[in-house]
Structures are given as structure tokens and as C-alpha cells.
Design a binder for these strands. Structure first.
Lengths: 338, 338
DNA sequence: ATAAAAATCCAAAACGTTTCGGATTTTGTT
DNA sequence: AACAAAATCCGAAACGTTTTGGATTTTTAT
């Protein structure tokens, strides 16, 4: 493995000069620089990032901390798309990304800070962690720069990217209302997510603005789980037969509601309209295809990485990025659409 | 940031002793070891992996090299599940994983070896690269340990994990034959994948063993693309109306064939049976649900990581792992199943 | 021709760890 | 008590880079 020392010897200069030549400093003669570059190429040199990181005290590596990346969690590929986006930006600016998977067992033995410092990441992106996750507290207190996805916490060292979940939910519900629905139920996610809170708010705002009453009993907790949402939908539909539409805080839960409808023999969308949230791949492949509020998850990852690296390099204007959502109308709300 | 030097000072011993105490060497008194550990904990010490990697000449990091991780490639989450598996094993044995995304533009500027050496990975896993990828050649020639997924190349430093694709395809086709189908078409993937070759072989073997003729013209190239498969299916079904079943080398292509059937007004499975390969998430959500040959992609990633790390630590018995596949019978081949 | 300025180079220290070879102390044996 | 053996410790070098602060050479201005 060739080092700058080898190059220095071959070129008859000091290692200082090699380093400075390769790093584009101006205090090295252009002719010697060319010679050094030539020799480096010949010797098939590649710099040792460990050594560099050691002396520069940064690794040009960021950590992506996801929660519960298991065999099962692969169904909703939210995590994956975010990851792809992060990876995209990171590789554009020549950083590396290392993936941390936080399982509850692991967390007990190693703190967030330890994890980050040990792997020498310059900063971290956190995705999919719940607001009651012990890591979250630590993040805010630690001095390691980090960007949260869908958790609105901001400090000197932490920023976040999210979408406007209130508006997104509102758009979904307004769509249902515009179709004539007056008795709309909502399946929300668990309470340990900010998005649940906000989507509920959007739901309420839409009703209010349309002059419709809000009923606590028309909101159920589906815990972001397909089966759980199915059960809740069955319960609601039997207890409250006046319901003609469901707004679900995730597509996965909407799938559960679709199953419930099928079980109860309700035709979609004629007898029951359903709209989800996220626009996961599955959404466009179900029968009928699912209307939803699309989040650009790839963009969320991309922007998170961009924000983090801007923060690292001290050129972030603000520490918050809010992305747009888009209403996708498919046949689970409107017959013969598309 | 505390270092072993700080600990040494606080404990009144040399840095050598601190290092050896923390690393469990036997030539340090148990009492002083406890003291050192205690102090390390107090000072909130975490070792600098860069420094360690520098002197030990290994990083305990492996690279996962995937091809074309873009916004679009997210549909078939093969890559993601493999990644999850890799991540799982890697974190079990306290390694790190860094993700490399090889786009064609990047490849021109940096060779595989450069990529790996620069990031100081100890070894690499390659997934989703085509057999004509310039990287592949390099891998075999380089001395960096690596594990390929679904590409059967073996050498002193390279191993692979795969499934038995011949057998898998055979099982699928035998299933169709057992249902009485005699005119079975195949939509294969592009020729730049070993799996295409092998699945074709399985297709032929199944026909042969059943005493059925093999017709070249019943095999089309769907290039692993949904749209392309749809076009080819339409073409085949109109040119060869005797076809009653399709075997597709990927689920994504099977989705294309389902669309084609829908367009041509053919009922599935009564008039046309369809079986895919992979068992992607979508497969169980389509109408009708898609029969397929399931590959445990998570396990593939897990085993790949395991094999690689065994190779790195010199305790790999063999450098090949072949996993099992499973026939999943759903309603695209058998009515009212499940 | 000479002084000042600019261009070009380099030795040495530093980053935080591991490890080699040996030094010192303690324990065991006779 | 004396010596050997075992246990415990440590100094210094090494890993490959960047950077500081100056040294040397060349160019420019007078």
C-alpha cells in the first residue's frame, strides 16, 4: 500500500510537499505538483482516510440512525427511501454514510453519544425514532450535530426536516369533504410520534373550516400497524354505521381499513372512501388503488443530509426544512379515476 | 474528548497499561484493571476507532456496494432487505457497514479498489451488479476480500452467496405443469445476470422431465422491467394464443404480465396462470395475489456478511453459501387458495 | 548590485492508539 | 536467604496524514 512517504521518495521531495501538492495548496511549484500527481497515479496511491481523519479530527462520515431495521420493517419502505436520499447527497459531496441500527437491547449498553463518538461520525441523521426514545433526550443534550426526521426539535446543534403534516392531513380531509362525505373517521398512529399529533390537528382544522363537528369517538389509534387498524376499523364501522370515509395517518393502516371493508362487504369507494398517508409503493398496487398524501421520502433523506453537512461546515442558514406534500387521488376515493 | 492518556494520568499508570487493561490483556493486575475501567467510565471515555484502525491496519468496517440505488429502484426492495440482513449481522459482531452507491459516472473516476482502500473497508459485499460491470473484473483481480450476491465467482479472496436458481425455477414450472398447463411461456431477465441463465435452465429442465417440448419462441426478454415484461406478454399472448401460463424470472415482471392479462381481458388464473420469482412485498397485495418463488433476501444479506467476516478473520470453511427457496402458492395460479 | 518580496520547499510535531522488548516487582522454591 | 520464575508494569516506536513556522531560493524593485 503506497503512502505519501513512498511518493516523496520517488519524487525527491518531502512528504510535506507531497501532501500540499495533492491537496491543492498554492505554495508548491506547478511543475513539481504535476510530477507528484503523476507519480501518485503510477504508484496507485489512495490516501488513508483513517490517518487523515485522525489528524484533522473529522471523518467525513455521517451516521444514519434508524430504529428497528428488522426483517419485518421492510414492508413500508419509508426507511429505505430516506436512506437512498441520504446516500445520494452524501456521495455527491464525497462523504460516507454508516448505518446504525438501534435495537432496544443495544441501546442499554451504548449511549447515543458513545455510538457516534466511537465510530467517529461528524454528525448523525435520526429517522423513525419515537419521541419517548431515550436517545432523543441525549441527542439534544449532546454536542454532536444532528438532523431529525419528522421531529421538530431545534437547538444550536440539532435541526430537522419534515413535511407540513397539518396541511397534508387537511388536504386529505378536504378532499373527502369535497366528495360529499360528512361522517369521516380517522385512524391515527401512536402518540409517540409528532406526526400523529399534527395529522390529527389537520383533520380537525379541515372539519372546522367546513363547519363539520369533530367527534372524539371517530378517532381511533391504529398504532401505525396494519392489523391494529383493521380491528379498529371493524369496530368503528359496526358501532358507527354513519361513517362513509376514513382518513388514515399511514398507508399501511389504510390497507388494514381496506381489509376491514372487504370483510364487512363494503364497496370501496361507493360505500366507503379511504385515503392514506405516505404514498408507499403498495398504495398504487392495491385494488382499488389507494388515494393518499404523498411524501417525497427520498427528498427528505436528501435534504436531511444536505442540511446536516451544511451545519457541519458552518454554512447552514437555518436548521429547519419543511417539504411539500401532494394529494394523490386514486380509486379508493373516486371511482374510475386514472 | 478523553483519551487513554487522560485515563493514564488519572490512574497514575502508563498509557500502555491503560490500553492493555481495557483490551483484556492478562499482564495487568486485576485491581488496577478495575480502577482503570472505573476511571474510563467516569471520564466517559470512548476509544478512537480511527487511531486504532490506523495502527492495527484494519477498520472493522465493511462496504456494501450496491448498483443504482436511486429514487426509482426502491420499488423492488430486494436491495433494502439484503441491506437489512447485512446490517443485522454486522451489528451483532460489532462491525460497521458503509454504503457505496456505484453510479456509472462515479465508476469512471474511481476504481473499485480505490473506493475500498480509500474508505479503508476491510472487505466488501457486492449486490445488484451486472456481470458486465467493469467493477466485477476488478474485484476478482484485487486482493480485497469480498462476497458477491448471486454471482458465482470464487477465488482466494472472493466468495458468494446465492440461492439455487435452477431448482427454484424448476419448482415454479413444475407447479404450473402439475396444474395441467402444457404451453408455458417464460419472461426472463436480461442476459447480464447469472440468475437469468440459471432460471432458464430450470425452466428447460422442468419441461424436459415432464416430457414437454421446449420452444425458443416462448421465451422473451423482459429485462427485469415491469413495462418491458408487459409489452412482451402482450406480444406473446397475441402471437401464441395457446399459452396458458407464464413463468417470470422476477415478480416485478410478473406484475407486468398481470397488467397485460388485464388489458387483453384474460382472467387470472382461469385463463392465464402467472408465477413470479422473488416474493417481493407487492406480490401478496396484488389482485389476485401472486404465486412466486420466495427468496429470503434478509438471510442472503445476513449470510453474506457472516461469510465475509469469517473470511476476514480466517475462519471460513468454504466460500460459498447456497440458500433455499420456497414455492409460495397464491391465487395467480390456483383459484381460491389461501 | 542590493534589498525586499514572493515563491517554493521542508523538518518536526501532532492526532490516539497498539505493541515490542525489556524493566521492575512480587511470589515461589530450595 | 538466595535465586528462579511469574506477575506486573512501562518507554518508545509505529501507523499515515496535516500543519506550523520557518528556511531557502527565486524574482522584483530600486
Amino acid at each position: 500500500m503506497t503512502t505519501i512517504k513512498d511518493i516523496a521518495k520517488a519524487a525527491g521531495v518531502s512528504i510535506t510537499t507531497v501532501s500540499r501538492a495533492l491537496n491543492g495548496y498554492s505554495d508548491v511549484n506547478e511543475k513539481t505538483r504535476q510530477k507528484i500527481i503523476e507519480i501518485a497515479k503510477q504508484l496507485n496511491y489512495s490516501p488513508n482516510t483513517l490517518a487523515r481523519g485522525l489528524v484533522m479530527n473529522k471523518s467525513k462520515t455521517i451516521g444514519l440512525l434508524v430504529s428497528g431495521l428488522t426483517r419485518e420493517s421492510t414492508k413500508d419502505n419509508f426507511t429505505f427511501e430516506v436512506l437512498a436520499g441520504v446516500n445520494q447527497y452524501v456521495s455527491e459531496v464525497d462523504y460516507d454514510m454508516v448505518l446504525f441500527n438501534t435495537t432496544s437491547t443495544k441501546q442499554r449498553e451504548k449511549t447515543y453519544t458513545q455510538l457516534c463518538r466511537e465510530r467517529r461520525v461528524d454528525g448523525a441523521i435520526l429517522q423513525g425514532i419515537r419521541v419517548d426514545d431515550p436517545y432523543l433526550q441525549e441527542v439534544v443534550e449532546s454536542d454532536i450535530p444532528c438532523v431529525l426526521i419528522d421531529i421538530p426539535i431545534e437547538s444550536e446543534t440539532v435541526g430537522y426536516v419534515t413535511t407540513d403534516n397539518v396541511l397534508g392531513a387537511k388536504k386529505a380531509v378536504q378532499h373527502l369533504i369535497s366528495l360529499g362525505h360528512r361522517h369521516i373517521a380517522m385512524i391515527n398512529g401512536y402518540e409517540f410520534a409528532f406526526v400523529s399529533e399534527q395529522r390529527l390537528k389537520g383533520f380537525q382544522e379541515a372539519l372546522l373550516e367546513a363547519g363539520l363537528p369533530f367527534h372524539e369517538h371517530l378517532v381511533a389509534n391504529g398504532a401505525f400497524k396494519e392489523e391494529r387498524a383493521e380491528q379498529e376499523a371493524v369496530r368503528l364501522l359496526t358501532q358507527r354505521p354513519e361513517i362513509t370515509a376514513f382518513f388514515c395517518a399511514s398507508d399501511l393502516m389504510a390497507l388494514g381499513v381496506m381489509k376491514a371493508a372487504k370483510t364487512l362487504g363494503k364497496r370501496i369507494p361507493e360505500e366507503l372512501a379511504i385515503i392514506g398517508y405516505d404514498d408507499i409503493i403498495l398504495a398504487s398496487y392495491t385494488t382499488p388503488p389507494l388515494s393518499t398524501i404523498a411524501q417525497n421520502k427520498f427528498a427528505m433523506g436528501y435534504e436531511a443530509a444536505k442540511l446536516l453537512i451544511e451545519m457541519l461546515e458552518g454554512k447552514a442558514q437555518s436548521r429547519v426544512r419543511v417539504l411539500e406534500t401532494e394529494l394523490k387521488i386514486r380509486e379508493s376515493t373516486v371511482k374510475n379515476h386514472g
